[in-house]
Simulated scan of single mutants.
Amino acid sequence: MIYLDNAATTWPKPESVSKAMKDCLQNYGANPGRGGHQLSRMAAQTVEETRRLLAQLFHVQDPKNMIFCQNGTHAMNLALKGWLRKGDHVITTGWEHHAVARPLEAMKKDMGIQVEYIPSGTEGPVDLKRLESAVQSHTRLIVSTHASNINGVLIPIEKIGEIAKKKGVPLLVDAAQTAGMVPIDVESMGISMLAFPGHKGLLGPQGTGGLYVAPDLPLQPLIYGGTGSRSEDFQQPEERPGAFESGTLNTPGIAGLGAGIQFVLEKGINEIHRYESLLTQYLVDGLKRLEKVRVFNSEYPSVSVVSFTVDGVEPLEVAMILDEHYEIAVRAGYHCAALAHQTMGTDQHGTVRVSPGYFNTKEDLDQLFEALDEIVKAFSGL
């Protein structure tokens, strides 16, 4: 199987990831922070080491401001529901994943928040002048994805961060498609909250993720319960990170996540981004040479996500044929991002999405080109 669906979940993982998870389960599979015995301390040490690695990766000064979550969507819901209040005004973009759009739309219905979507501009994927002018006295948050999961376009977070800082409004960033693949510095980029999954560019297992929260941002917990501290008190503790990590953490998953981050740090994000950019350009060039294939690549800087369609063939059918007849895994449809498809003008049928990763090769893409050429000829009656 040639796996080209890394925008959903990266695979394969570094061997160190499964080794770390196995070591945790076999040798110290106790609850972190829920007991004074040595197994519990070992588990807690693994959790805190992964937290430290995350802080290092995102240039966070205090690791206690890194909160572990189930995934990026959980992190996004924690950020939105822990910060927004009834009647607040929120500014976001036309590129957002449902992890952003659906919670906002639900809160608009249930809490009366106002949501303003900023479209693309003539000079970039987001109209920055319109975004800045949209800020009102009751604007409480600006939310933006860092890169589209449809065509990989990179959103100018640094410039949005400058606007947010100038206007005194926190900036929440969805780093689902960039964490581990593009350098992120939360302070220099003006990011107040950063939501990310562990199973994509960080090369960890599913069921992991996290949220960075700026130290001066008074976020409310999404889930209340046991934290392993202040157990004599009925009130939720306020200290980070425990205030936001009620219940038992996914210690084996966090162990694997730590190994994935270590791999990323050792290889270097710039090197990973360079290699994936080369693959992406090779992919775009190869697709454009095929007849009846329309490529929806970004004209701006992007990550390794490319969408296309085949004239006269539904995207879902293309993906099914690639899977069943050629053993090539891609994803087709709307990719949980209706807003982005509306922005691109592909909301009628969606697209086929190809997302090569660090472990893919040009030979993998050559086989994709050959398969698509045969599919086009078959449906054209050639």
Rank of each mutant, 00 (worst) to 15 (best):
Q114G: 04
A164L: 13
P156A: 07
A337I: 06
G209Q: 14
Q45L: 10
V313K: 10
F369I: 08
P103R: 13
E49R: 13
W83G: 06
T351M: 04
R52I: 01
R274I: 05
C69M: 14
L279V: 03
M66K: 04
M1G: 14
Y117K: 09
H97N: 11
T280V: 03
M320V: 01
I261M: 07
L372R: 07
R41H: 08
S246H: 08
Q177S: 08
L54T: 02
I157N: 02
F58L: 10
V90C: 08
A371R: 02
F359T: 14
A79T: 13
E291K: 15
S229P: 00
G226V: 01
G190Y: 12
Q114N: 10
L104A: 04
A99P: 04
E374Y: 07
A337V: 02
A134D: 02
D347T: 09
M181R: 15
G87V: 11
K267A: 13
R102Y: 06
M107N: 11
E363W: 02
S192W: 04
P252M: 02
M189E: 11
I150F: 00
Q262E: 12
A255R: 08
M189R: 12
E271Q: 13
L194K: 06
L217Y: 02
R140A: 15
R289S: 06
L222C: 13
G36D: 14
P125E: 01
G198D: 10
I142Y: 06
V313E: 08
P301Y: 00
V352N: 04
L128T: 03
K165A: 15
H273K: 07
L287Y: 01
A147Y: 00
L322P: 08
M344H: 10
R240Q: 04
L249V: 15
H199P: 01
F369K: 10
P103N: 12
S133I: 09
D88L: 05
N31T: 06
R331T: 14
R240M: 03
G253K: 07
S18G: 04
D174I: 12
E374T: 11
L154S: 06
D323G: 03
